[in-house]
Amino acid sequence: MMKGVHYFLATLALMALASSFASAYDPSPLQDFCVALDDPKSAVFVNGKFCKDPKLVTADDFFFPGLNIPRNTTNPVGSNVTLVNVDMIKGLNTLGISLARLDYAPYGLNPPHTHPRGTEILVVLEGTLLVGFVTSNPDNKFISKLLKPGDVFVFPIGLIHFQFNPEKIPVVAFAGLSSQNPGVITIANTVFGSNPPISVDVLAKAFQVEKNVIKELMAPFMGSKS
Rank of each mutant, 00 (worst) to 15 (best):
G118Q: 03
R117K: 10
T58F: 08
G158R: 15
P70V: 05
P220F: 01
H113Q: 04
N189D: 03
N181K: 12
P197C: 00
P220L: 02
M218A: 07
S199I: 06
L9M: 14
H6D: 14
T190P: 05
V84S: 07
N110P: 00
Y107F: 13
S42R: 14
F50H: 12
N47H: 14
F64Y: 15
L92H: 05
P27K: 13
S19V: 07
S98H: 08
V209H: 12
V81S: 06
N68H: 15
S199G: 07
T94A: 05
T186H: 08
P70Y: 07
I121M: 08
P156F: 03
A105Y: 07
M2I: 12
E216P: 01
A10P: 06
L125N: 03
E120M: 03
F62N: 04
G66K: 11
S226C: 11
F8Y: 14
V200F: 04
A13K: 15
F50I: 02
V152C: 08
T58W: 11
F221I: 02
L95C: 02
E120T: 01
L99D: 06
D60P: 09
V86M: 10
F142L: 15
L146I: 01
S23F: 08
I97R: 07
D201K: 14
Y104R: 03
V152E: 06
I198F: 13
A18N: 10
F50N: 09
R117V: 02
A24F: 12
N212W: 14
V124I: 02
S23C: 09
K225I: 01
F164Q: 07
T119K: 03
D60Y: 15
L177F: 05
V123M: 15
F207M: 08
Y25Q: 09
S19A: 08
S23K: 13
F62L: 03
N189I: 09
I187H: 10
G48S: 02
V44L: 14
D26N: 11
L146Q: 11
N181F: 05
Q180S: 10
D201G: 12
L99M: 06
P156Y: 08
T94W: 08
V171D: 05
R117S: 02
F192K: 10
N181L: 12
